[in-house]
Amino acid sequence: MNFWELLVIGVGLSMDAFAVSICKGLSVRDLKPRHEVLAGIYFGGFQMLMPVAGFFLGYSFQGLISDVDHWIAFVLLGLIGANMVKEAFSKEEDCGCTDTSFGWRAMLPLAVATSIDALAVGVTFAFLKVNIWEAVGIIGVTTFVLSAAGVKIGNVFGAKYKSKAELAGGVVLILMGLKILLEHLGVLG
C-alpha cells in the first residue's frame, strides 16, 4: 500500500474518533488547547496501538489463510464500514460521551471503543504485507489531527457533523476493501 492509500484508511478509521471528539467538544464550556491535545493523544495513540496488535495476531495466522487473505480483508473492511454507515443513519442521538471530563477514566474507554476497528485493519495489514510502522504512523497522526479538530468543531458548531463523519468513514473503508479484493482478483491493475 502506498502513502495515499494508507492516508485514506487512516481518515476512514479516524471517523469514529472524530465523531466522539465532536461530542466531547459539545460537552466543554470553556475549551482549552489541552482538551484538543488530550483527545488527539488518546484517540491517535490507540489508533496506533490496535493495528500493531492486530498485525501481529494476523501475522501469526498468515500461513494458514494466505490463499483467502484478500477475501478476509474485503469482509473485515466491508463489515467495519457497513457498521459505520449504519451508525451514521441511526436515529440515536447519544454521542456516548456524557462525561465532560478529559481524564483517563473518561477517555480510555472511548479510545478503546473507537479503535477496535483498527485492530481488525491491523489483521488485514498482516495479510497484505503492509509496512506496519509506516501504516500506524500515518493512522496515528491522522487520527490525532482529526480528533483535536473534532473537539474544536464540536465546541463551535455542534453535533451536525457527527453522522456525516461516520458515513464518510464507513464508505471509505468499504471502498478500500473492495479495491483490495478487485486487485487480488486481477480486475484492477
Rank of each mutant, 00 (worst) to 15 (best):
I80S: 09
R34N: 03
R34A: 03
G140I: 06
L119Q: 09
V121G: 04
G189E: 00
V121C: 08
K129W: 00
D30Q: 05
S147D: 03
F74Q: 06
F56K: 07
R34K: 09
V68N: 14
L185Y: 05
I132G: 11
K179R: 15
C97T: 00
V68Q: 11
L13A: 11
L76P: 12
H70I: 03
M15E: 09
L77S: 13
F55P: 08
G45E: 05
K164L: 07
I116P: 11
F157T: 08
C97K: 01
G154E: 05
L13Y: 09
A17H: 06
G158A: 09
L76M: 14
C23I: 11
A82Y: 10
V20R: 06
L188V: 08
S21A: 15
L31Q: 05
D16E: 13
Y161I: 05
E87A: 12
S115E: 14
V121Y: 05
A82P: 02
V171I: 15
V172E: 02
A106Y: 01
F3E: 01
F102H: 02
V75Q: 12
D69L: 14
D67I: 01
G63D: 10
P109H: 09
G44K: 07
V112N: 10
I65C: 12
I180Q: 09
G169M: 10
A82G: 07
H184W: 04
M48A: 15
P51C: 13
V121F: 05
D94C: 05
L26E: 15
L79T: 13
L167N: 02
A135F: 04
V172W: 03
G137L: 09
E93W: 01
N2P: 00
V20P: 06
G81F: 08
R105W: 01
S14K: 08
S115I: 14
L57H: 02
G170C: 06
L182C: 11
E87M: 14
S101P: 00
H35Q: 02
A126C: 04
G189K: 11
L178T: 15
M84C: 10
G96C: 05
K160S: 12
G170P: 10
F56G: 10
S27G: 13
L7N: 08
G170N: 08
G25A: 06
Y42W: 14
D69P: 00
S147H: 07
F157A: 14
K91L: 14
T143C: 05
G140Y: 07
L79Y: 13
G170S: 08
G169H: 05
K24Q: 15
G40W: 01
V20N: 08
A148I: 03
N2S: 04
S66L: 09
G63L: 06
W133R: 03
N155R: 11
P109F: 10
L38K: 07
G58L: 12
L185P: 02
Y161P: 00
G169V: 07
C23P: 01
E36C: 15
V37N: 03
